[in-house]
């Protein structure tokens, strides 16, 4: 049954503390809908493009939050695969990373990212960012069917 459950937010992030902070921030703002966390790039690709889960990816998640620095396969590669595939390119992807580097930002936008957020060090700001992100992409944004 796990395979068919509805996932609203797919969080691809390897730092356990950042995962906890993100999930906490989302919950704090009552955007706890359904969060699925994957902490490994290869695993993320398997989850998205694996045969078992492919059908489900057509309907959801509403947004993918993606870190750039990931074990095995990095975030930009995942973004490239997501935006290069007919089935997944319509899923909004928000890159949320510590990197403020111009080239990461430019490269992400070139690959078609929907939004790029630099994780602030300040937890309050971080909560705000995650809140706005969740509000917009999960609750407000009207996705095509």
């Amino acid at each position: 049954m796990l395979q068919t459950k509805i996932v609203d937010i797919l969080l691809i992030e390897d730092s356990p503390t950042d995962i906890e902070l993100t999930v906490r921030a989302l919950k704090k703002n009552h955007i706890s809908n359904e969060i699925h966390v994957i902490s490994d790039g290869a695993e993320a690709l398997e989850y998205i493009f694996g045969s078992e889960t492919k059908a489900r990816m057509n309907n959801n998640p509403k947004v993918i939050i993606l870190d750039l620095k990931l074990p095995k396969v990095d975030g930009l590669e995942i973004l490239k695969r997501l935006k290069g595939d007919e089935n997944t390119k319509i899923i909004p992807v928000v890159v949320m990373t510590s990197s403020k580097e111009e080239r990461d930002i430019v490269e992400s936008y070139k690959l078609g990212v929907n939004s790029y957020i630099v994780k602030p060090v300040d937890f309050d700001k971080f909560v705000n960012s995650v809140n706005e992100l969740g509000m917009y992409w999960v609750l407000l944004n009207e996705a095509p069917n």
Binding site: T17, D18, K69, S98, S99, E101, K119, F123, D124
Partner: peptide, 21 residues
């Protein structure tokens, strides 16, 4: 500097975040 930008910030966020929680 790339790894400073990425890796040094991450634990700081954890410090700040968990202290605030």
């Amino acid at each position: 500097s790339y790894s400073v930008s990425h890796d040094l910030r991450s634990p700081l966020r954890a410090l700040d975040g968990f202290a605030r929680i």
